[in-house]
Amino acid sequence: GPREVTMKKGDILTLLNSTNKDWWKVEVNDRQGFVPAAYVKKLDSGTGKELVLALYDYQ
């Protein structure tokens, strides 16, 4: 199956793709996968990378 990404509340993840309104593709610890968009919030990183903050645990 697809590689699952797990996250804990407060984690910072790299946002790869947010074109789908329900599932965003993120990368964390060299793993890529989809997380519910409602579970993360975009951060203003000030760099080229888009980052998101995990609002809830997800696994």
Rank of each mutant, 00 (worst) to 15 (best):
G1R: 13
G1N: 12
G1C: 15
G1K: 12
G1D: 11
P2T: 13
P2G: 13
P2A: 13
P2R: 14
P2L: 14
R3G: 14
R3D: 11
R3E: 10
R3N: 13
R3W: 15
R3Y: 15
R3H: 14
E4F: 15
E4R: 15
E4V: 15
E4A: 15
E4M: 15
V5E: 02
V5I: 15
V5P: 04
T6Q: 11
T6G: 07
T6M: 12
T6A: 13
M7Y: 04
M7S: 01
M7E: 00
M7D: 01
M7C: 04
M7W: 07
M7L: 06
M7G: 01
M7V: 06
K8C: 09
K8P: 00
K8G: 03
K8I: 07
K9A: 12
K9I: 07
K9G: 04
G10I: 02
G10R: 02
D11T: 06
D11P: 01
D11N: 05
D11G: 03
D11I: 03
D11V: 04
D11L: 04
I12K: 05
I12L: 06
I12N: 02
I12V: 10
I12C: 05
I12D: 00
I12F: 05
I12H: 04
I12S: 02
I12P: 00
I12W: 04
L13P: 01
L13M: 10
L13G: 07
L13Q: 00
L13I: 06
L13E: 00
L13D: 00
L13F: 06
L13S: 02
T14D: 04
T14A: 08
T14Q: 08
T14F: 10
L15F: 03
L15A: 01
L15C: 04
L15Q: 00
L15M: 02
L15N: 00
L15P: 00
L16G: 01
L16Q: 03
L16V: 10
L16W: 03
L16F: 03
L16H: 03
L16K: 04
L16C: 05
L16A: 02
N17G: 06
N17H: 06
N17M: 07
N17Y: 06
N17R: 06
N17W: 07
S18M: 09
S18A: 12
S18G: 08
S18P: 04
S18W: 09
S18N: 07
T19N: 12
T19Q: 10
T19K: 10
T19L: 08
N20F: 06
N20H: 11
N20D: 12
N20Y: 07
N20P: 04
N20M: 07
N20E: 06
N20V: 04
K21F: 06
K21V: 09
K21E: 08
D22M: 13
D22P: 02
D22F: 15
D22H: 15
D22V: 14
D22Q: 11
W23K: 02
W23Y: 06
W23R: 02
W23T: 02
W23A: 01
W23D: 00
W23P: 01
W23I: 03
W23G: 00
W23Q: 02
W24M: 03
W24P: 00
W24Q: 01
W24T: 02
W24C: 03
W24I: 04
W24D: 00
K25P: 01
K25Q: 12
K25W: 15
K25A: 08
K25S: 07
K25C: 14
K25E: 14
K25N: 05
V26M: 01
V26W: 02
V26K: 00
V26D: 00
V26H: 00
V26L: 04
V26P: 00
V26C: 03
V26N: 00
V26S: 00
E27G: 08
E27D: 05
E27W: 10
E27Y: 08
E27Q: 13
E27N: 05
E27F: 07
E27K: 08
V28L: 15
V28Y: 13
V28C: 10
V28N: 13
V28S: 12
V28T: 10
N29W: 06
N29Y: 08
N29S: 07
N29I: 05
N29G: 14
N29Q: 08
N29F: 08
D30Y: 07
D30A: 09
D30I: 03
D30R: 07
R31N: 09
R31Q: 12
R31P: 01
R31H: 11
R31T: 14
R31K: 12
Q32N: 07
Q32L: 07
Q32A: 11
Q32K: 08
Q32Y: 11
Q32S: 10
Q32M: 10
G33S: 06
G33M: 15
G33Q: 06
G33C: 12
G33T: 08
G33A: 11
F34Q: 03
F34K: 02
F34L: 06
F34H: 05
F34P: 01
F34R: 03
V35N: 01
V35D: 02
V35E: 01
V35W: 02
P36T: 03
P36L: 06
P36W: 06
P36E: 02
P36M: 05
P36N: 04
P36Q: 03
P36F: 06
P36R: 05
A37N: 02
A37R: 09
A37Q: 04
A37M: 04
A37G: 03
A37P: 04
A38S: 15
A38V: 09
A38R: 14
A38F: 08
A38G: 10
A38Y: 08
A38D: 08
Y39H: 05
Y39P: 00
Y39E: 01
Y39N: 04
Y39C: 11
Y39A: 08
Y39K: 05
Y39T: 05
V40P: 01
V40Y: 02
V40C: 11
V40W: 03
V40D: 01
V40E: 01
K41G: 05
K41L: 13
K41C: 14
K41I: 13
K41R: 11
K41H: 08
K42N: 05
K42F: 07
K42G: 04
K42A: 06
L43T: 04
L43Y: 07
D44S: 11
D44E: 13
D44L: 11
D44K: 12
D44H: 11
D44F: 13
D44Q: 12
D44N: 12
S45L: 13
S45V: 11
S45M: 12
S45G: 12
S45W: 11
G46R: 08
G46V: 13
G46P: 13
G46H: 12
G46Y: 11
G46Q: 12
T47F: 12
T47G: 14
T47W: 09
T47N: 14
T47Q: 12
T47M: 11
T47V: 12
G48P: 08
G48R: 06
G48V: 08
G48S: 09
G48L: 08
G48Y: 07
K49V: 13
K49C: 08
K49F: 09
K49R: 12
K49Q: 12
K49S: 10
E50P: 12
E50R: 13
E50N: 13
E50K: 11
E50M: 14
E50H: 11
E50V: 14
E50L: 13
E50D: 12
L51A: 05
L51F: 10
L51W: 09
L51G: 02
L51H: 06
L51Q: 10
L51M: 11
V52K: 00
V52F: 05
V52S: 01
V52P: 00
V52R: 00
L53V: 14
L53R: 07
L53M: 14
L53D: 00
L53P: 00
L53H: 03
A54I: 05
A54N: 01
A54W: 03
A54M: 07
A54G: 02
A54V: 12
A54Q: 01
L55W: 02
L55E: 03
L55A: 02
L55R: 04
L55I: 08
L55Q: 03
L55D: 01
L55N: 01
Y56H: 10
Y56P: 00
Y56L: 09
Y56G: 04
Y56N: 08
Y56Q: 13
Y56I: 09
Y56M: 11
Y56S: 07
Y56W: 08
D57E: 05
D57V: 03
D57W: 04
D57F: 05
D57M: 04
D57Q: 04
D57G: 05
Y58T: 02
Y58Q: 02
Y58A: 02
Y58N: 01
Y58W: 14
Y58G: 01
Q59Y: 13
Q59D: 13
Q59I: 12
Q59M: 11
Q59H: 13
Q59L: 10
